[in-house]
Design a protein around this nucleic acid. Structure first.
Length: 517
RNA sequence: GCCGCUAUCGUCCAGGGGACUAGGACGCCGCCCUCUCAUGGCGGAAACCCGGGUUCGAAUCCCGGUAGCGGUACCA
């Protein structure tokens, strides 16, 4: 499975980040040895210890047998990519780029009911927007059905799997008969679905980089169905075979898969036993804590922006989303919260991934997005705003709005009236454009109408003149003017806005207010 | 039911036997800056789930309880 150089990395900028990270890492290769799973080398002990010793004992430079890190992101196209999936994609991407490894994109479309080409497109679109690229794929799982059938046949003839017509009810009945903690074991039949034969003795242990070792007693496991009666394979089988064939070294995915892992490990072991997969070591696992909504419940529509597309439409920057998502379940270790993608790549480390579930907090995302917006150059911010709004010529307004907006979507409500004319806000009019306000406006008009410069400082001088002459508070002058120009009590700075509108348009808008008495 | 994972401010992330009067960030409150809205600066309130045990010493290790979550599909 080497070098089918598939889709070009979608995004040039992420290439940059990658190259940078690679350079920065230099020759100091700190890599955990993958595949210590195989021989059950019994690294035992607690998680930290395990990781530490794994790191120390890891092969040094130039040692034979070390594989480059190969990870995969394997979404199932049963809906739009949600932020949980996006976070999984990001962590895989960060690990691959940090280690100078490879990321495989695989589409797990074996669910014939729910998988659609549209959803595949959505996922690709979401990854594109997030600027997460991959090195191989997308591989459609269903396109590998021949290989799956072959592997399935091997397990069958090797006695690691058998045909069974047992139904879910049969399994339930079996357990009632044998006690609830006794896994289902079927009798081979002439036809039916394919079940994997789980050993009665022993335990299957999952070596997890985040959680340490988790042991599952085989006796508790049911013989899982790995293929339907029609021969089509099921998830836990396809995943195992695909990971094996792809030479995946690290399986990084949501914690909801932890309980599936022993089944996949059993498939993997059976596959190796019948000679599948060559010398490749089995992958190590890293199960990421799940993401929940603000209420601690499963993420859903009612929590606001839950899919990547919704995040984009809400005006978030992809780099801010990457930054925020990285902070869900991971921390840089020194309390740094604002990180560029390059820094993320440099500092990302599976060992620092937390084990607790995290809640998606859009308020913090908004703040972080504001930070990223303010760090953009004006031309770059302008480019983003123009793409987002579909309008052109936004640079001046972008400049004077930059420190006031948190998302791209905040921009138009704030500054749109500078382009499209005042909005209609009766409350604002009544409050600021009464007799007093208009009297002030008349003076303002006179001051602004004078010949001379009209840049921000010139405007400021003229308005301050009015202020002093009439002995008014700043707001008593600026608010009527603001409402006259924008229709609203909220806008970018007054001097900046007036200068941007220009003398002609400013006077026209003031006159319009003065005219309808 | 059974199997498994998890448990520090409202939220996210630190802290992994003594340096903890538990640190940082978001949010919240107050003050300063200020033409609105923001930004920025300063200050404040705010947490180790409960119970045992180990230890001279436990937020940290162990056990139990509780709670949340995941799995238990011819879904993924």
């Amino acid at each position: 499975m080497g070098g089918v150089p598939l889709p070009p990395r979608r995004v040039p900028r992420s290439r940059r980040g990658r190259a940078g990270a690679r350079a920065a890492r230099g020759s100091r290769s700190k890599r955990r040895s993958p595949g210590r799973l195989g021989g059950g080398s019994g690294v035992g002990a607690a998680r930290r210890q395990d990781l530490a010793s794994a790191r120390v004992s890891g092969p040094c430079r130039g040692n034979a047998g070390r594989r480059t890190v190969r990870v995969r992101f394997a979404p199932s196209p049963t809906g739009a990519l949600h932020i949980g999936g996006a976070r999984t994609a990001l962590f895989n991407w960060l690990l691959a780029r940090h280690e100078g490894g490879e990321l495989v994109l695989r589409i797990e479309d074996t669910d014939r009911e729910r998988s659609t080409p549209e959803n595949v497109e959505q996922i690709l679109d979401a990854l594109g927007w997030l600027e997460l690229d991959w090195d191989e794929g997308p591989i459609l799982q269903t396109e590998r059905s021949e290989r799956h059938a072959q592997a399935l046949g091997a397990l069958l003839s090797g006695g690691h799997a058998y045909l069974s017509n047992a139904t879910a009810e049969d399994v339930k009945a079996y357990k009632e008969l044998h006690g609830a903690d006794r896994g289902f074991r079927g009798e081979p039949e002439a036809g039916g679905a394919v079940r994997l034969r789980v050993p009665d003795e022993g335990a299957t242990v999952v070596h997890d980089l985040i959680r340490g070792e988790t042991s599952f007693e085989n006796v508790h496991l049911d013989d899982p169905v790995i293929a339907r009666a029609d021969g089509s394979v099921l998830y836990n089988f396809a995943v195992a075979i695909d990971d094996l064939d792809a030479g995946i070294t690290h399986v990084v995915r949501g914690e909801d898969h932890l309980s599936n892992t022993p089944k996949q490990l059993l498939v993997l072991e059976a596959a190796k036993a019948v000679g599948l997969g060559g010398e490749a070591a089995l992958p190590v696992y890293a199960h990421l804590p799940l993401l929940h909504g603000p209420d601690g419940k499963k993420l859903s529509k009612r929590h606001g922006a839950a899919s990547v597309q919704e995040l984009r439409d809400a005006g978030y920057l992809p780099e801010a989303v990457r930054n925020y998502l990285a902070l869900l379940g991971w921390g840089a270790g020194d309390d740094t919260t604002v990180l560029s993608t390059e820094e993320l790549v440099q500092r990302f480390d599976l060992e620092r991934v937390s084990r607790n579930p995290a809640r998606f907090d859009e308020v913090k995302l908004r703040w972080l997005n504001g930070v990223h917006i303010r760090s953009l150059s004006v031309p770059e911010l302008t480019r983003r705003l123009e793409a987002f709004t579909g309008r052109q010529g936004l640079e001046g307004a972008a400049r004077i709005s930059q420190e006031k907006i948190h998302t791209l979507a905040d921009f138009w409500p704030l500054a749109g009236s500078l382009f499209d004319g005042p909005v209609d806000d009766p409350t604002a009019r009544e409050r600021w454009l009464g007799a007093d306000g208009r009297a002030v406006l008349a003076d303002v008009r006179e001051a602004l109408a004078q010949e001379g410069g009209f840049d921000e400082s010139a405007v400021q001088e003229r308005l301050q003149d009015v202020l002093q002459r009439r002995g008014l508070k700043p707001r008593e002058v600026y608010q009527p003017l603001r409402v006259a120009l924008t229709g609203s009590t909220v806008s970018p700075g007054m001097f900046e806005s007036v200068a941007l509108l220009g003398r002609e348009e400013t006077l026209r808008r003031i006159d319009r207010v003065l005219a309808d008495a």
